[in-house]
């Protein structure tokens, strides 16, 4: 089955924290105030952060596994 995971374009991320607020799994953190980091173990690929991101720099990556 295809698995989906959110990926942040760290270069473009503005570290606003919208994704962090909306993540139902608490999988997102912005530890250094520079960009958001997604815990791939926790991420279920729901895509809420993708919709929320005001800079639209998060995408869902689909991988077969």
């Amino acid at each position: 089955m295809a698995k989906r995971k959110a990926i942040v374009s760290t270069r473009e991320c503005v570290a606003c924290g919208c994704c962090m607020k909306v993540c139902p799994r608490g999988a997102i953190s912005i530890p250094k105030g520079i960009f958001a980091e997604i815990d791939r173990e926790l991420c279920v690929g729901c895509g809420k952060c993708v919709k929320e991101c005001p800079a639209s720099v998060i995408v869902l990556e689909v991988s077969e596994s």
């Binding site: 503005v14 606003c16 520079i34």
Partner: peptide
């Protein structure tokens, strides 16, 4: 998007810069 101000907010850009410099 609702919080698109955050993308170009000068305070946000400045604090991100400070964080970059600090780290």
């Amino acid at each position: 998007k609702p919080r698109s101000w955050c993308v170009y907010c000068p305070m946000g850009t400045m604090t991100q810069l400070i964080c970059k410099a600090k780290h």
